[in-house]
Amino acid sequence: MLEIKNLHVSIEEKKIIKGLNLSINKGEVHALMGPNGSGKSTLSYVLSGKDKYEIDDGTIEYNEKNLLELDVDERANEGLFLAFQYPMEIPGVQTSFFLKTAINSKRKYLGQSEMDALEFAKLIKSKSEDLNINTEMLKRDLNVNYSGGEKKKQEILQMSMLSPKMAILDETDSGLDIDALRIVSEGVNKLRSKENSFLVITHYQRLLNYIKPDFVHIIADGRIVKSGDYSLALELEEKGYEEISNSA
């Protein structure tokens, strides 16, 4: 699904990612853990195609395509989804309208006809119920005056509406109380299947109690320093980043 080889990335001449390798297969959930400034968020932006990041070396293959050659919207429409750490507010644009626009952009890209209003209403209703989202919220402007928890739930709602092949969750757990965390995790777990993959970026092991990863990677100073299974997350919780990074 996703194959990152020897990736080197800098921003304004400052090297952030320094030779990162990562391979994610169909149906797998990978957790990427690391301290602040280790390059976690940068990786999520590079994968989704945000500009200002300079790719100095390396390759990224996604679904047998050269990911780096695709525009941001092409990547999205090819099934790559980023759940943002800080979702943007868009005043004057109703949340449900935004969702419909996103779905139809993807359908247009795939050469499919637009989703009609009835089908859309059904879909959004069932997905909202799954995530315990009050549909009144969808009438408000996108992310405007949403609480931190509402914004994150909104991201997961968008994810489940768009049913991506490869979803990246960038610190989705930050700022969530335990109830919201559970709802968000359930949303992810419902979507998990043999057909799609996840890259869950987080500081804390806490989230991984709810979303059980197949693999855990620890990133430090722009490289993956240690990989393992779920037990690595538990070990990290016990020993801390420094000890693990140093022992690697």
Binding site: D71, E89, S105
Partner: peptide, 15 residues
């Protein structure tokens, strides 16, 4: 960042 957010949801830059 707003533009990037929309594009990440599949909208081209003009949309």
């Amino acid at each position: 960042d707003q533009l990037f957010y929309c594009q990440q949801r599949g909208l081209n830059s003009e949309d």
